[in-house]
Design a protein around this nucleic acid. Structure first.
Lengths: 193, 193
DNA sequence: CTATTAACCTAACGTTTGTTTGTCTAAGAT
DNA sequence: ATCTTAGACAAACAAACGTTAGGTTAATAG
């Protein structure tokens, strides 16, 4: 009955991380359906069948990536929120942070916006729950905000997140930096039209 | 050498429109890759092979739908813009109109946001050109706007369109109407945060 | 009435898909 | 030195995919 070591000590030459990285990159840029297991295997430098040593199915691979993505994004966001000195500053920091996260090329978080809900029906509920957890931070931030009476808090959250998540469709490195883009969103929200 | 009638008079019992409607509906809700020709045929009430009497390929079907979509959206938008009495009012009318268009269930326009760029590589350029034409209306509207100096016009356009296009991911009939949602966007832009 | 053709259907083609199976290799444990 | 097993490979599977080919029907034109 084997080792007394409870750690799932992975061997040094395991390419699990290469698989996760490849999947995250391809799911984020091409979407779930448009990415094949062969694409992922090729990008990770291995054979298609080998992926199934690490994950039982394509959907499970997506779920694993999604969990890492939310975790990464969440910890980034928490730190940004801490740095804000009042509710309004916290909200602004969060906006800039989320924008940077979504435009960071080597980050998993773009999978959250690159995968259509319902592309993986069997795990759709889990993915939605994960994403909702992340968005809860924004819920709390906006609740603590002083706002004009005509502004609906739920709508504000959905519009801001929608605008930021859409940046991935037009962003191109070389122009404005992710940080500048995030700051512009804040600016547009602060200036009355 | 046939008829002197130059009209491409389509027969009354042709189900071309059923094909277009089915394709628009499925591409809009599931995306391009996730929609199969069999899905479309089934929804249109015919056999998969029959689709190829009307269109030479899946991509050509998408293109035809896309062209109708942009045309519909454009004519709606033009009318809304006409109804605004000054640049600011025109911009606001355009926001509400575009929101209603995107959330209209029986409209083709959702295909513009439901299909990922690059899903159909061979016609990607045409699709982008079509969409750019539509967005040009917003470019012109924003150019005519009096704005605070710190607000970048290009960013304002991308953020507003991004926020509106994202509504399709969370909108559910029964809650706020498309019109109310559009008006809330305007409200959030007008009120300083 | 006959010839034509628009608009489908039926049936299959070749390819790509996610996945499974069995084998090999090398690293760590005994 | 031997055993075990993590981690990969090579090859194939069945299903689903976009697409094609040929036959059928019914409306229209002459």
């Amino acid at each position: 009955m084997a080792s007394a070591n409870p750690n799932k000590q992975q061997r040094s030459h395991s390419r699990l991380n290469a698989v996760l990285d490849a999947g995250a990159m391809l799911f984020a840029t091409r979407g779930y359906k448009a990415t094949t297991m062969r694409d992922i295997a090729s990008q990770a430098g291995m054979q298609p069948g080998s992926l199934y040593y690490h994950f039982a199915s394509k959907q499970e691979l997506l779920q694993a990536i999604y969990e890492i993505a939310v975790e990464q994004a969440q910890s980034r966001l928490d730190e940004a929120i801490r740095s804000g000195k009042n509710p309004q500053a916290k909200f602004e920091e969060a906006i800039v942070c989320h924008t940077e996260t979504m435009l960071d090329q080597d980050n998993y978080a773009r999978v959250m916006t690159g995968v259509l809900p319902g592309d993986a029906p069997e795990i759709e509920a889990e993915l939605t729950t994960l994403r909702d957890g992340y968005e809860d931070s924004f819920r709390r931030l906006i609740r603590a905000l002083k706002l004009p009476p005509k502004v609906d808090r739920k709508m504000l959250r959905l519009f801001v997140l929608g605008a930021i998540n859409a940046t991935r469709t037009w962003y191109a490195p070389g122009g404005k930096t992710p940080r500048q883009i995030g700051l512009q969103i804040v600016e547009i929200l602060k200036q009355p039209l």
